[in-house]
């Protein structure tokens, strides 16, 4: 029981980088990017293929990250220069990457068993050490992202999702900031894929299926727990959201009448609920305010009528 929770924490940390990527597109850029399902595998594919061909595992991981950045840039170019609807641009890239990923690996999957990787020394350590090292690494990346989002360029990126017209009027090329953001996002997603490939000891061309929804679920869970008041809180929330998601997932697997194949459905339902509740709440609040205000106005005019 406890062991499976510790394992879930490790997974949560490794997947957190993917969730941070999703946070950049969905929340910061307000761009629903579906490239993720493909670029996650691209990261794993490049990394696993390079390692199994004897390259340095760190270099291979970095190359995985770069592969994701390139995939994201392609999606960004399709959307901004090609003027293709954002959802469609992501789906097109996702489909294209499926073939590309198999090309990279030369087969639908690559095994990394018994090969030295970035995480293999940690797999032999106590799980606590693994959690600590992964935690520090993820928080470091999160902190770098926080810093970036407060630079002049980072501010322009955030403003692109918040009010593109405004930041254009102050001279930012919003096509370029979008491409940058989508590239960075998919880089993080691919990095996550590269690390998970090394953690699991293999890359499979189908391991990215539904990744986007898992990323969204992590973002939404984090938001529900922490809120998103400031950038560094929001990114921390995403990391925690990812860990919580993995723990819930691990616990759900222990429930007898659940199949592990049901989990995608549960994730989807979770995201749907999280998306619908705030809207319903807003509508209800608006209605009650409107009703109160109408009664107030009615009362006023009745008062006036009485006096006249």
């Amino acid at each position: 029981m406890l062991a499976s929770i510790y394992g879930a924490i490790v997974l949560g940390l490794l997947y957190a980088l993917m969730a941070l990527g999703v946070y950049i597109t969905f929340r910061i850029l307000d761009f629903p990017d579906l490239t993720v399902d493909g670029s996650f595998v691209t990261g794993g594919a490049i990394c696993a293929t390079m390692i199994s061909n004897g390259y340095n595992p760190y270099l291979a991981t970095l190359a995985g990250f770069a592969g994701g950045v390139i995939a994201g840039i392609c999606t960004g170019l399709l959307h901004t220069k090609g003027k293709i609807n954002g959802l469609l641009a992501g789906i097109l890239m996702m489909i294209a990457l499926y073939s590309i990923n198999i090309r990279i690996m030369g087969s639908p999957n690559v095994s990394l068993l018994n090969i030295k990787t970035v995480v293999s020394p940690l797999l032999d350590e106590k799980i606590g050490v693994y959690i600590a090292v992964a935690g520090v690494a993820v928080l470091l990346i999160k902190a770098l992202l926080d810093l970036f989002l407060h630079t002049d360029l980072g501010l322009a990126l955030r403003a692109t999702g918040d009010n593109a017209r405004m930041i254009r009027s102050f001279g930012a090329n919003t096509d370029r900031t979008k491409i940058l953001g989508i590239g960075l996002s998919n880089g993080l997603v691919a990095l996550s894929g590269a690390l998970l490939a090394q953690h699991g000891g293999y890359t499979d061309v189908n391991m990215g299926v539904g990744m986007i929804v898992i990323g969204l679920a992590s973002v939404i869970i984090g938001e529900a727990i922490f809120g998103m008041r400031r950038v560094w809180i929001a990114t921390l929330a995403v990391v925690v959201g990812s860990i919580v998601y993995r723990i819930v997932y691990a616990l759900a697997l222990r429930v007898e009448w659940f199949d592990s194949s049901d989990l995608k459905l549960i994730t989807a339902v979770l995201v749907i609920i999280a998306l619908v509740i705030p809207q319903v709440r807003r509508a209800m609040k608006q209605k009650s305010v409107a009703r109160k205000r109408t009664l107030e106005l009615l009362g006023q005019s009745a008062g006036k009528g009485g006096r006249a």
């Binding site: 630079t151 002049d152 930041i167 930012a172």
Partner: peptide, 13 residues
């Protein structure tokens, strides 16, 4: 952002 109107935006704080 307004302060940087029309200038290059980089990695400066």
């Amino acid at each position: 952002m307004a302060y940087k109107r029309g200038q290059r935006r980089g990695f400066g704080w």
